[in-house]
């Protein structure tokens, strides 16, 4: 899962980024609204974690501009403003609202819940044919037998599985798998796809290549 965190407090930003990265997520950190909006417009993210009171452009404005630009992805506001009226105004544009100071456990749980809602799942288990993907445990099974995947392979499978029957372009997949500044090797996606296809042999799903368009997970 790829997250864009927009937070101007260095300590909080760095700490949350590190905490999420240690869960295996890919996190880009922006320190003001304008930088955050730029990243949102130029990469692909599953979740946006946005401070409400940001320099240059407020968190609410960032989300509005993202929605105007038709940028999908669940947005969570993190803020010091905990009054009901603040929560209501925040939830008018965002999918969830977390009041500072918060515990990392709660933040992660909310992010997972919001992510599940955004992909239309009520639980953490994604099923594609005989393939089972547990988003919480980040584990994969074929007919109940566990398949060992690396973090990147899991991210790739998750990205394709959450976008079933939808063609994901090479750029979109790269955007979801690598941080903004973490430029991948030119053929790393192909290598990753090759490895994943091999590990998914025996599954009733297939990663098909749509020429000059991208890739798609298809249930056989």
């Amino acid at each position: 899962m790829k997250v864009l965190l927009i937070e101007d407090n260095q300590l909080l930003g760095r700490s949350v980024k590190l905490g999420l990265e240690e869960l295996g997520w890919i996190v880009d950190l922006a320190s003001d609204g304008e930088e955050g909006l730029y990243l949102a417009q130029n990469s692909t993210y599953d979740i946006f974690l946005i401070d409400r009171m940001l320099p240059k452009l407020s968190g609410i404005e960032v989300i509005r501009k993202m929605r105007e630009a038709r940028i999908d992805g669940a947005a969570i506001i993190i803020t010091a403003l905990g009054a009901t009226s603040d929560k209501i105004s925040g939830l008018e544009v965002a999918d969830d609202y977390i009041v500072k100071p918060f515990e990392m456990g709660e933040l992660v749980a909310r992010m997972k819940a919001v992510y599940r809602r955004s992909i239309g799942k009520s639980n953490a288990l994604l099923e594609c044919g005989n393939l089972g993907i547990n988003l919480n445990e980040q584990s994969v099974t074929i007919n109940g037998d566990k398949v060992d995947l690396t973090a990147k392979e899991f991210d790739l499978l998750e990205s394709l599985a959450t976008r079933q029957n939808h063609v994901c372009s090479r750029a979109e997949l790269s955007g979801l798998l690598y941080s903004f500044n973490g430029e991948p090797e030119s053929n790393s996606l192909d290598v990753l796809l090759g490895r994943l296809r091999k590990k998914l042999q025996g599954a009733t799903v297939e990663i098909v290549t749509i020429r000059s368009k991208g890739f798609m997970l298809r249930v056989e």
Partner: peptide, 24 residues
């Protein structure tokens, strides 16, 4: 709003830093 932001954000930062630090 400003005072809350200025006071709560560093506290949130310290909590997150400590939680992440102690996680492993």
């Amino acid at each position: 709003a400003n005072a809350s932001h200025e006071l709560k954000t560093p506290v949130a930062g310290m909590m997150a830093a400590l939680e992440v630090l102690l996680a492993r």
